[in-house]
Amino acid sequence: MISVKVKSIMDIADIFGCHEQVISLPEGSRLSSLLDVLEKKYGQPFSAIRDKIYMRKEENNSRKINLFLNGRNIIFLDGLETQLNDGDEVFFLSPVGGG
């Protein structure tokens, strides 16, 4: 098994009930497997989130949820097919503005 740290903020942290948690997955899991586990754990509220994830550069999508693996946006990786490793960190960035 591998352990992946999952970070989130705002509406997604509200669904998870925390802004940081560790999820265990079988060796060789991909990002899509992590989303499956989260969907099973949190049900419909997470399914709605899953539909809003920005997955490919080609998508014309200005404000979806950005997903980062070890700090890098998954659109620069293999999207949901990206392989996960033990100790990886995944961050769900809800639409935010300001600064």
Binding site: I9, A13, G97, G98
Partner: peptide, 25 residues
């Protein structure tokens, strides 16, 4: 039509960036 301006930014303002920048490290 902005996904952020209403209601999130109107109700929270810039402090939401604390959480975004934390997540991004």
């Amino acid at each position: 039509e902005s996904p952020v301006l209403y209601p999130a930014f109107a109700n929270t303002g810039t402090p939401m960036v604390v959480e975004a920048t934390w997540g991004l490290g």
